[in-house]
Simulated assay, not measured.
Amino acid sequence: MSKLPHTKLHAKYYADKMAQVHSVIEQNELVGEKTYRLRIAAPAIASTVVPGQFVMIRIAGTDAPLIGRALAVYNVTADSAGDPTYIDLVYLRKGVMTEALATSPLGTAVTVWGPLGNGFSTVGCDRLIMAVGGIGQTPMLMLGREAMGSQSFGSPARENGWSNHVELIYGARTKALLAGVDDFRGAKFQVTLCTDDGSEGVRQLVPDALAARLAELPQDEKIRVVTCGPEIMMEKVAEVCAAANIDCDVSMETPMACGIGVCFSCVAKIRQEGPEPWDYKRTCVEGPIFSANDVCW
C-alpha cells in the first residue's frame, strides 16, 4: 500500500504562526439538535487557515470556563470586497464551554487564536471520500471545496482542484443530529447519510457504508479517504482502508487545553522509526491530521 508523506514536526506548525483575534459573535445558529454554527470576523485567521486546521476560542472577560475550546474551522467567507474575513465554527452543545457559547447573545466578545495544527495535505486523487461521524463533519466542507477546485485556502493559496470527485459518508445516531447536510450538498459533494436508528439515509455504521462503497468503485481508481469522528469509528475506517489498500488520513479529536503544544494534554500514540516503535505526539502541533497507518489505536 502506498503511504502518504510522513509529516515530521516542523516549526511551521508551532503557535508562533498564529494570530490572536479579539472579535464578537456575529451569528450563532442552530443547525442540528444541540449543534450550532458560530460566525466571527477574524480576517487574520480567515486569510491563512487551511482545511483541517483549528482555532482555540474562549469567551472574553470571564474565567468560567477559564481555558479555551478547540474547534475545527468549518468555513471561510469573504466580506463585500471579496477578502476572506469570517470564520465559521460548528460545535455540539455538551459541556461547560459549549453551553456558554450556545447561550451567548450576538455581540458577545470572544478571543480566538489560530490557525493551529497541520491541516490536511493536498495529495491528489481521482476520488476523495470523507467518512465522518458525530461532529466529525466540521473540517470537511473546506477540504471538499478545495479538492473540487471551488475555493482556495491559505496564504499563499494552496493548490486546489486535486480530486475529480468528492463524496461524504456521514453518520449520526439519529436524523436530528445530522448537521450541515445542505452545505455539503450545496457544495456538489455526493452525500451518503447513515443513522443508527434508520431515521435518515441507510441504517448502517459509517465503516460498513464505506466498505460497501469501496466495493462498488473501479479498482484502478486512485482513492483517498479522510476520516474524523469518534475514535472507534476512525479505527474501523482505518481497518477498512488497510484491507482495501487505500490511503487514509485521520483527524484526531483529542481533548486540548492550550492548543499550542505546551500542556501535553492532547497526546496520541503515533508510530515512529527508531529504537522505540511509538511515541506520544501532540495533536495540536504534530496533528491533528495523521496517516491512519501511524496511529496506535
Score class of each variant (00 low, 15 high):
R93S: 04
R93P: 01
R93M: 04
K94S: 05
K94Y: 07
K94G: 01
K94N: 10
K94H: 08
G95C: 02
G95P: 00
G95W: 00
G95F: 03
G95H: 02
G95E: 07
V96F: 08
M97N: 04
T98F: 02
E99N: 10
E99F: 06
A100G: 03
L101S: 13
L101T: 10
L101G: 04
A102L: 00
A102I: 03
T103M: 01
T103W: 00
T103K: 09
T103R: 14
S104G: 05
S104C: 09
S104I: 06
S104W: 03
P105D: 14
P105M: 10
L106E: 04
L106R: 14
G107I: 02
G107A: 02
G107N: 02
T108H: 02
T108M: 04
T108G: 06
A109P: 07
V110Y: 01
V110W: 03
V110Q: 08
T111N: 11
T111P: 12
T111Q: 13
T111L: 04
T111G: 01
V112P: 02
V112R: 00
W113F: 04
W113I: 15
G114H: 11
G114C: 10
G114D: 11
P115Q: 02
P115S: 01
P115G: 00
L116E: 00
G117A: 15
G117P: 10
G117V: 14
N118R: 15
N118P: 04
G119M: 02
G119T: 03
G119Q: 13
F120E: 05
S121Q: 14
S121K: 00
S121Y: 08
T122F: 10
V123Y: 03
V123I: 01
V123R: 10
V123M: 00
G124A: 15
G124N: 03
G124S: 15
G124F: 02
C125R: 14
C125M: 11
C125P: 12
D126G: 15
D126P: 02
D126W: 09
D126M: 06
L128A: 14
L128V: 11
L128Y: 09
I129N: 09
I129P: 06
I129D: 02
I129L: 08
M130R: 09
M130C: 11
A131P: 11
A131E: 07
A131R: 15
A131T: 13
A131W: 12
A131D: 11
A131Q: 09
V132E: 06
V132Y: 06
V132S: 09
G133Y: 05
G134E: 06
G134M: 06
G134C: 12
G134A: 11
I135Q: 05
I135E: 02
I135C: 13
I135S: 15
G136L: 04
G136V: 05
Q137V: 08
T138Q: 06
T138I: 03
T138Y: 02
T138A: 15
T138P: 08
T138G: 07
P139S: 07
P139Y: 06
P139N: 09
L141F: 08
L141S: 12
L141C: 05
M142H: 11
M142T: 04
M142Q: 13
L143T: 11
L143P: 10
G144R: 05
R145K: 15
R145H: 01
R145C: 14
R145M: 15
